[in-house]
């Protein structure tokens, strides 16, 4: 049996990759994918612990997270498409109309 620390390390790695991606990428879609990565890191942790503790609640929550992530992706992608239509770009550095 694979010890839980492996899962956790993988999750942490994924989370770190996601964070760095979210902070450094300029393409909106990439940021989005990075966030998905972070969510999945969290999911992995939940599942691992759920298995470890023999409590299904954690796996249940993962379904919720996936559902929300899907909804978020739908809304987010729709937003980016709308933005792209008006600005011809999804470079977030150039989408700064809301500054001071």
């Amino acid at each position: 049996m694979v010890p839980i620390s492996w899962y956790l390390m993988l999750a942490a790695l994924l989370f770190a990759i996601g964070t760095i991606g979210a902070l450094t990428r300029r393409n909106g879609i990439s940021i989005f994918l990075s966030i998905e990565l972070m969510l999945n890191a969290a999911n992995l942790t939940l599942v691992a612990y759920s298995r470890q503790m023999g409590d299904r609640t954690g796996q249940l929550i993962v379904f919720f997270v996936m559902a929300v992530a899907a909804a978020e992706a739908a809304v987010g992608l729709a937003l980016f498409i709308a933005v792209f239509r008006s600005r011809r770009t999804i470079d977030v550095n150039r989408l700064n109309l809301m500054r001071w």
């Binding site: 979210a22 902070l23 450094t24 300029r26 909106g28 940021i31 977030v92 550095n93 989408l95 700064n96 109309l97 809301m98 500054r99 001071w100």
Partner: peptide, 9 residues
């Protein structure tokens, strides 16, 4: 309030 998503992040 830079308006830059990545700063907020």
């Amino acid at each position: 309030t830079t308006g830059n998503v990545r700063s907020y992040a």
